[in-house]
Amino acid sequence: MLGKFTDGGGEVELRLDIGKLGIENSRDVFVDVDDTSLLVRAKSDGTLRTLINVKQLFDRIKSSETIWFIDEDQLVVNLKKVEQELKWPDIDESWESLTSGITQLLTGISVHIVGDSTDINEAVAKEIAEGIGYLPVCTSELLESATEKSIDKWLASEGVDSVAEAECVVLESLSSHVRTVVATLGGKQGAASRFDKWQYLHAGFTMKLSAKEEARRSVSSGNVAYAKADVVVKLGGWDPEYTRAVAQGCLVALKQLTLADKKLAGEVSIIQLAS
């Protein structure tokens, strides 16, 4: 269904072209809306057709204040936003709208990705950075470049404590940077796994990626450092093919956190992603 979407500040408007459907009056149109979704159907030639079905609006609306009407060959749906200052790039919460809209909430603040897997942290960080136009930074690459040896060789020769201390120094140097997405080391060699190494991670938003098996290992090992994360994104599993989906879940969580932070500072947002 072709249409036009506009953000008018305190409200958004959706115009759907219905000229070819033969809809004669408003009684043939059915608009079902709640605070986060929109379903528009119309009866045409005796058949009930779905014109648009948005299961997740870009943000919450005041559903009781929804207005709709027919304007010549267009169906106009007017939605009142809850967060009036938040600009909607589009009607739905898609990857494109999230990557376009999240920067107004981040205001240049950097994002740190932590978790038990370095590979997952780096894959998701790079996907997010590319999407929102931030600089991707991997602490593993900086450490290996500075020492001219791999993390594995470093671990074998000097142990996990040495690597964690070095990463903390790197995070300190990055703490003054803006518009970066930083992928940290996973596991015990990562500074994020140490309760006393979080002072520089707090320079930005910190997101913990947690696969089911990794969450069980963290609990069994008594690791509570990750509890300091601003956002926890729980993964049903991991496959590089779904990096974009995980990155999108992270942006959803970041959006929820930054909007909620106006009222509930410091509250942790938890997003569960299905496997």
Score class of each variant (00 low, 15 high):
158 E>I: 02
54 V>C: 11
32 D>R: 13
44 S>N: 11
127 E>R: 06
169 V>L: 00
9 G>Y: 05
183 A>W: 04
273 L>S: 04
128 I>Y: 01
139 T>E: 01
245 A>G: 12
268 V>D: 07
157 S>D: 13
55 K>H: 15
197 K>S: 02
1 M>Q: 13
212 K>L: 05
125 A>L: 12
143 L>Y: 00
86 L>I: 11
40 V>E: 03
85 E>W: 13
9 G>W: 06
91 I>Q: 04
109 I>T: 10
51 L>A: 10
99 T>I: 11
150 S>M: 12
193 S>W: 00
62 K>Q: 03
7 D>P: 10
3 G>A: 10
56 Q>N: 13
9 G>T: 05
49 R>N: 15
94 S>A: 14
188 K>I: 01
32 D>T: 04
108 G>V: 04
119 D>I: 14
177 H>R: 15
263 K>P: 04
109 I>W: 09
88 W>P: 01
268 V>R: 11
50 T>C: 12
207 M>H: 03
214 E>M: 10
253 A>K: 01
158 E>K: 02
41 R>V: 13
178 V>I: 09
100 S>G: 05
34 D>I: 14
149 K>W: 15
84 Q>F: 15
126 K>F: 14
133 G>W: 03
49 R>V: 15
173 S>Q: 11
149 K>P: 14
55 K>Q: 12
78 N>T: 04
43 K>C: 12
178 V>W: 08
237 G>Q: 04
66 T>K: 06
18 I>L: 15
176 S>G: 14
108 G>R: 06
189 Q>D: 01
79 L>G: 02
47 T>H: 14
64 S>C: 07
95 W>Y: 07
148 E>V: 11
77 V>K: 00
167 E>S: 00
172 E>N: 08
79 L>P: 07
26 S>V: 09
45 D>N: 13
64 S>P: 06
272 Q>G: 12
56 Q>F: 13
81 K>Y: 08
225 A>V: 01
34 D>L: 14
46 G>E: 12
123 A>Y: 06
271 I>P: 05
238 W>I: 08
21 L>I: 05
243 T>A: 04
54 V>S: 09
126 K>R: 11
4 K>N: 13
199 Q>L: 15
49 R>I: 15
163 V>E: 02
273 L>C: 07
80 K>M: 12
194 R>S: 00
104 Q>I: 08
58 F>R: 05
42 A>H: 02
170 V>N: 02
109 I>V: 13
200 Y>G: 04
128 I>S: 03
193 S>Q: 01
133 G>H: 10
164 A>V: 01
2 L>A: 11
51 L>Q: 08
120 I>H: 03
5 F>V: 07
275 S>E: 06
